[in-house]
Design a binder for these strands. Structure first.
Ligand SMILES: [Zn+2]
Ligand SMILES: [Zn+2]
Ligand SMILES: [Zn+2]
Ligand SMILES: [Zn+2]
Lengths: 676, 676
DNA sequence: TCCAGTCCATTGTTCATTATT
DNA sequence: AAATAATGAACAATGGACTGG
C-alpha cells in the first residue's frame, strides 16, 4: 500500500520535473523569434558602447542587449534597452570626471547595502518572462533529465491532484525541502546515507511561502538524517579544501562572511572602501568563475553580495557608521540603476556638477583615502558637503529614492546613537589611580583634551539632580563634562577628519555651548529646577540667592533662553543626543582652515539630517520641521548665553599672563587653577 | 562667617576657572596666525609623502611632519620631514623585504623603556607652546562654562590671595582633591550623596608636587565622603560594565594594570614583546577611540602607556628564555636597521652587523618572532600547466610547429582537466545557509543557472552508489547535478564567449545529455548497476520493478544504448571528463545566433581535439581514432535517450500554462515544482 | 576569579604583475 | 610608450575565545 503511494508520488514528481525542464527548454526556443530583432539592436549597441569597451570582453559582441532585463518582468526588451541608455547617460553626466578614471564597465551608482541583496531582484524573473510570449512548435526538442526521471517520464501528469499525494508522502521528507520534493521519481528507502550527505537536504532549498501548489510536506524525513546540520563532513580533520563562493577558486578561509579567495576578498574590500558601484555592460548575467572573474566587476561584486559577503565586515577608516549607510544606499541604488556600464560612485548627487573633488591619493596604502584634500584646486563644486570629503560619507545629493535614503540614514542614526550611548556610559571604574607623575607638567589644552584621564576619572553620570550643588560638585562636574565632551568629539568621524589645529579650535569653541546643553537637558530629564550636573547635584538660580549673587543676570536669562523653551519641547533622548552633536558643529568656529570649515559644514548638515530624521520619526514629518526650528532656536539661546557670560570675563590679569612671552612659566601657575 | 568664606572661595575659583577657559580659547585664536604657514607646509608634505600615504589618514594633510617629534622637542618641522625621509630610506634599505612589509606609519625609534613614558615628552609641551606666540584680539569669542560658573563670572579675580583662602576652606575637602578644589562656586552642604558618587572626589586628580600656588589643602572634607576609595559603586553586583581605558571599548577586565579591551591588551603585549616603537605620522595627537584605534599605532601605544599600562607586566623573557639567543641576534639586526620606517624589533646594539641568521620561526604563537622570514621561497617552478588560465590557453590558429602545437595542446588538456577537477571538487562547506529570503521569488532558469547557490549547496560528490536511490536522493541529485553543470559551463571559455541567449539555449539543451553522461559514468566507475547519483545512491532499472514501471522502456534502452557500451570502453577519468565537455558542444542547439553556432563549432572541434589527444595518449595513436568513434557513438545513444524521454513529455497542462499571457502568475506555481 | 598567555580566524598591508588609460 | 590603476598572493596584525596557574 505504502509503496503504491510512493510510486504515485514518484511518478508525479518525476513528470512535473521533466515537464518543467521541458518548459525551460521550450522557453529557450521561443526566444528565438525575438532573437532577430535583437540582432539589430546589437549593432547599435556596439556602436554606442564601442568607446568604452573593455579589451577583456571576449565574447561580448552581441551580449549587450540583455541589460536591464531584471528591471521589470513584464517590460519589453526594446524599452529596456532605451531605459538603460538613458540611465547611463545620466550617470555619466552626473559623475563627471571621477567616472572617467575607472574602467568603463564600472558605474558608480551608490553605496552598497550591507543587508540587502539586490541581485536577487534584479536578476530573477524578467529574462525568463520574455519567452512566454510566443510558443513555437519546436516540440521536438530532445530533453530529458537522465535515469531516474526516465522512469516516470511517460506518465501523464496528475495535475492538481499532486498536492494531496505529495502531502502524504511528505512524511518522509526533510522539512525544509517542503514542496520542492514533489519532483522526484524514486521511492526506494535509502538503506544507507553517508554522513557527509545526510546534511544536505536540510540546507538545500527553502520553499517559498506562498504557492497554491505548495500543498506539500512539512514532516521531516529519512531517519538517516541524524547528523548535525553543519556541513561537517566525516573527515573534518583532513583540511578540507574550501572554495570561493564567488568564483569557485580555492579559498583560504572565510572572508567578510563567506569563503572567498584572495582575489575576491581583495576585490570586495577595495570596492567597499572606494564605495564603488559598477554596472554591467553585458546584461548582468556574466558568469563569475575563476577564469572570468575580472571581466565584469559589476557582476563580480553583485555575486559577492549575493553569496552573502558583508560590506559591514570591511573595516573602513574613520567612521564605520557612515560608510555603512552609504553602502546600503549604494546597494539599493544599484538595484534601481541596474542598467549599465560605468561604475558609479558614491554619493555625489548634483547632476552635471563640475568635476567633483579630485580624489586625493592615499599614497601609502591601498586604502581608500577618504579625505580629499581639496587644498589644491579643490573644485568644491559649491554645494557644501558635497565636497564629498570622506568619499563616501553621508551623502548629499539627490539620492535615488527617498525611501532608500531614509533607510540608510536610519541606520546611521542608530549607529551614532549607539556610539553616543556607550560614550555616555563609559566609566573608569576600577581604574584606581591614573598615573600621578604627570601632574607636574603643565596641562595644556591639547594635552587635557587628548588625555582626559589626566583631568579626572570618568565617573558614572548621575544626572538625577537630587541635591544642591556644592563647590566640589561644580568643579568635578566641569571636569567630568569636559572629559565627556572630549570623548564625544574624539569619536566623531567629522572631528577625526580635521587636522590638529582645527580640532583644537573646534573643541575650545564649542565646549561651553555643549556644556550648557548638557546641563540643561539633564535638568529637564530630572525634572529639576535650574541645571543638573553629572554627579547628581543641581544648581538653581533661586537657591541661596544671597550666596550666589547673579550680577550679570545670566542665571535668570539662562532659564528664559534655554531651560524653559527646552522643557516645552519635551525632546526625547535621541533628539537630545543628536541635537547636541548638531550644536557642536552648528556654529562657526573662528580660525578654521578651509578644510576645517568644509568638514564643519558637512558635519553640520549631516547631524542636522539625522536630527531631522529622528524628529520626524517620533512626531511625524509635519511637526518635524517645526521642531527643528525650535531646536535651532535653542541653539541661538545657548549662543547668547555663551556670549553673555563670556563678555564679562575679560579679566586683565588673565590677559597679562597670557600675553607674556614667558607665558609657559606664568601660565603654569594659573593653569593649575584651571579646572583641569 | 563660614558661608562668607565659602562664597569668596567660590567666586574666586569660579572666576579663575572661567578665565582659564577663556585663555584656552584665546589660545586657539592665537594659533590662527600660525595656521597659514602650516598650509604651505601641507602641500609640500603631500608631494613628498604622496607615494606612501595611507588612506586612513583622514585629517592628515599636514600631519606628516611631526613624525619624529618624539626624538627631539626642539627640532624644526622641516628638518623632521627630511629626517624622516632619510630614515625611511635607510630602513628599507637595510631590512630588505622585511621593512617594506610594514605599514609606513610605524617607525621604530628604539625600544620602549618599561619605566619611561616617552609619550609624555613628545606630546606635552611643544604643541601647546606654539600658541604662545601671537595673541590676536579675537576677544569676542563667546565662551562660558554653563550654569554654575555664571554665578561668579563677573567677579574680578583675587589673584594670588587665592592660596590663603583656599587653604582655609580646604578643611572641608578631600585630601586628594587638594588645591584643585579651589574652583567651585557652591558651598551648600550636600544633603545627600549617592554612594556611587561619593568616591569620585577621592580619585579625581592628584595635585602636582611643586607649584608656587599649590598652597592648598591637605585635610579631608565633606562628611559624606565615607565610602571606600575603590570605585565600588553601590551595585557591585550588577555586572558593571568596564571600559577600556585606552579606547573606550568594552573591557573584559584589567590587563597590564588598567581596564583594557582585548584589542588593546593584545596590541600592548605585541608591542612590548616585539619591542616596537612607532612614530605618529599625524603629529602625535591622534584620538584613540574604538573606531580609530587602529589608525595610528604610535598614538595607541602612547595612550596605553599614558593610562598606565605597565610594560613590565608583560611577561617576556621568562618564558622566552630559551629563545633569547635568537632574540638577541634578531635584535642586533634590528639595531642596524635602526633607522627608519618600520618598527624595529628588539634592542640589541651592534650596528651594521650583517643580517644574521634568520631565526627559526616559532610558528605557532604570536610570540615575538624574532626571526625574519626570509625569503620568498621557491617559485614552484613546476611547469605546471597550472599557470595559465584555461581561457587564454588553447589557441586556435596555426601554431608554428607540430611539436609546439602538440605541446600547447597538452598544456591545454592539463589545464582543462585541472579546472574540471576543481569544479567537481568544489563544495560549499561551511557556507551554512545561503540566504533564505530570496526563495520567495520565482526561480527562472537564468537565475537558477547563474546563481546555483539558490538551488542548493554544493555538496561533495559521492558517486559510490552504495545505496538505492530514494525520492530525495533523486531530487537532490538533480539539483546537485544542475549546479555542477552550471559550474562547468560557466568555467568554459567557449560558453563564456557566447551571448546571453545563446548561453541559455545551450545550457537548457545540453543538460539532459550531460546528466545522462554523468550518471552513467559514475555508475561505471562505481561498478554499479544502472546509474549512480552524486549523493551515493544509485538507480537500477531492475530494482523494484513493480514500483518503477518503465512504460516507455527507457530504462531498459538506457542500458543498451549507453551503459553497456560505456562499460566496455573502459574510459579513464580524463577521457570521461573531456568527452563530457565534448558532448556538451557536440550537438546542434536550436535557436543559436550565428555567432553562437560558430562558437559551438569551435568548441566542439576544440574538445574533440583534446579528447583525441587524451585518447591517443593512453592507448596510442592507432586505437585513438577507433576510440573516438566509439565515444561518439555513445553520444548518439545519449541523444536517442534524450529524445525518447523528451517526446513522451508533451503534457498539455504545461503548455497551457506556458502559453497563458498571464504566464508569470501561472508559471510561478509550476516553477515551484521544478527541481530548482 | 583574575589575569597572564595562546590560538587562530579574519582582517589589513604590501607590492610585483597585469590591465587600462 | 609612459603613466596610472587594479589585481591577488604573501605576509603581518588584530582581537575574540580560550587555557592555565
Ligand atoms: Zn573568488
Ligand atoms: Zn556583468
Ligand atoms: Zn581598547
Ligand atoms: Zn598618531
Amino acid at each position: 500500500m505504502f509503496e503504491a503511494i510512493v510510486l504515485l508520488v514518484q511518478i508525479l514528481i518525476n513528470s512535473i520535473l521533466i515537464r518543467v525542464f521541458v518548459y525551460y527548454c521550450r522557453d529557450s526556443f521561443s526566444k528565438k523569434a525575438e532573437t532577430a530583432p535583437h540582432e539589430n539592436a546589437k549593432t547599435e549597441t556596439n556602436r554606442s558602447t564601442k568607446t568604452r569597451r573593455s579589451s577583456r570582453s571576449i565574447r561580448q559582441v552581441s551580449t549587450a542587449q540583455q541589460v536591464s532585463t531584471a528591471v521589470s518582468a513584464s517590460t519589453q526588451q526594446q524599452s529596456q534597452d532605451m531605459d538603460f541608455e538613458v540611465a547611463f547617460r545620466d550617470r555619466a553626466h552626473t559623475f563627471g570626471d571621477i567616472a572617467i578614471k575607472y574602467p568603463k564597465h564600472e558605474i558608480p551608482l551608490t553605496h552598497i547595502s550591507p543587508t540587502l541583496h539586490m541581485s536577487d531582484k534584479s536578476q530573477a524573473g524578467p529574462s525568463s518572462s520574455i519567452s512566454s510570449a510566443a510558443f513555437p512548435g519546436s516540440s521536438t526538442t530532445p530533453i530529458l533529465p537522465p535515469p531516474a526521471p526516465a522512469l516516470g517520464a511517460s506518465f501523464p501528469s496528475i495535475g492538481s491532484s499532486v498536492g494531496g499525494i505529495g502531502s502524504q508522502h511528505a512524511m518522509n521528507m526533510p522539512q525544509n525541502l517542503s514542496h520542492w520534493h514533489q519532483a522526484g521519481p524514486s521511492s526506494l528507502p535509502s538503506p544507507f546515507v553517508p554522513p557527509s550527505l545526510s546534511n544536505l537536504p536540510p540546507v538545500a532549498l527553502h520553499s517559498p511561502g506562498s504557492s497554491s501548489i505548495r500543498p506539500v510536506v512539512p514532516a521531516p524525513q529519512t531517519p538517516t538524517l541524524t547528523q548535525s546540520p553543519q556541513g561537517s563532513s566525516a573527515s573534518s580533520k583532513q583540511k578540507q579544501r574550501l572554495y570561493c563562493a564567488v568564483c569557485g577558486d580555492t579559498a583560504l578561509g572565510r572572508h567578510y562572511g563567506v569563503n572567498a579567495c584572495n582575489g575576491c576578498k581583495g576585490f570586495f574590500r577595495r570596492s567597499i572602501w572606494k564605495n564603488r558601484t559598477y554596472v554591467c555592460r553585458f546584461g548582468g548575467h556574466c558568469p563569475v568563475s575563476k577564469e572570468h572573474r575580472n571581466t565584469c566587476r559589476a557582476c563580480r561584486l553583485e555575486t559577492c553580495l549575493r553569496v552573502g559577503m558583508n560590506p559591514r565586515a570591511v573595516q573602513s577608516e574613520a567612521d564605520l557608521a557612515q560608510s555603512q549607510q552609504e553602502q546600503q544606499m549604494a546597494a539599493q541604488m544599484k538595484r534601481e540603476a541596474e542598467e549599465r556600464d560605468e561604475y558609479i560612485f558614491s554619493q555625489s548627487p548634483s547632476p552635471n556638477s563640475p568635476p567633483p573633488p579630485s580624489v586625493d591619493q592615499s599614497a601609502q596604502t591601498d586604502r581608500p583615502d577618504l579625505h580629499l584634500h581639496l587644498g589644491t584646486g579643490s573644485f568644491e563644486s559649491g554645494d557644501g558637503y558635497g565636497a564629498m570629503s570622506v568619499d563616501s560619507v553621508y551623502m548629499s545629493g539627490n539620492p535615488p529614492s527617498l525611501d532608500t535614503k531614509h533607510f540608510s540614514k536610519e541606520r546611521t542614526v542608530q549607529n551614532t546613537l549607539m556610539t553616543m550611548k556607550q560614550i555616555f556610559e563609559r566609566t573608569d571604574e576600577r581604574g584606581e589611580e591614573m598615573r600621578t607623575e604627570m601632574h607636574d607638567e603643565v596641562l595644556s589644552f591639547e594635552r587635557a583634551f587628548y588625555n582626559p584621564e589626566l583631568i579626572g576619572k570618568r565617573s558614572r553620570l548621575d544626572t538625577s539632580g537630587v541635591r544642591p550643588a556644592s563647590i566640589n560638585d561644580i568643579l568635578l562636574d566641569f571636569r567630568r563634562a569636559f572629559v565627556l565632551y572630549a570623548d564625544i568629539l574624539i569619536s566623531l568621524p567629522e572631528f577625526y577628519r580635521m587636522n590638529h589645529d582645527d580640532r583644537m579650535a573646534l573643541a575650545k569653541a564649542r565646549f561651553a555651548p555643549y556644556y550648557w546643553w548638557l546641563t540643561a537637558n539633564w535638568a529637564v530629564r530630572a525634572n529639576a529646577q535650574g541645571f543638573c550636573y553629572s554627579n547628581g547635584s543641581y544648581f538653581s538660580a533661586d537657591m541661596k540667592p544671597q550666596v550666589f549673587p547673579d550680577l550679570s543676570g545670566i542665571s535668570e536669562k539662562s532659564l528664559v533662553l534655554l531651560k524653559e523653551p527646552l522643557e516645552e519641547l519635551q525632546l526625547d533622548e535621541d533628539e537630545v543626543t543628536l541635537a547636541g552633536l548638531f550644536f557642536i558643529f552648528a556654529d562657526e568656529v573662528p580660525n578654521l582652515s578651509s578644510d576645517g570649515c568644509r568638514y564643519l559644514e558637512e558635519a553640520r548638515s549631516h547631524y542636522q539630517e539625522l536630527l531631522q530624521l529622528v524628529c520626524s520619526r517620533s512626531r511625524g514629518e509635519l511637526s518635524a520641521a517645526n521642531r527643528i526650528a525650535n531646536i535651532t532656536t535653542l541653539l541661538s539661546g545657548i549662543t547668547n548665553l555663551t556670549y553673555m557670560s563670556g563678555e564679562s570675563l575679560e579679566l586683565p590679569e588673565v590677559f597679562r599672563l597670557v600675553e607674556s612671552p614667558d607665558w609657559t612659566q606664568e601660565l603654569r601657575l594659573h593653569q593649575y587653577q584651571s579646572p583641569f
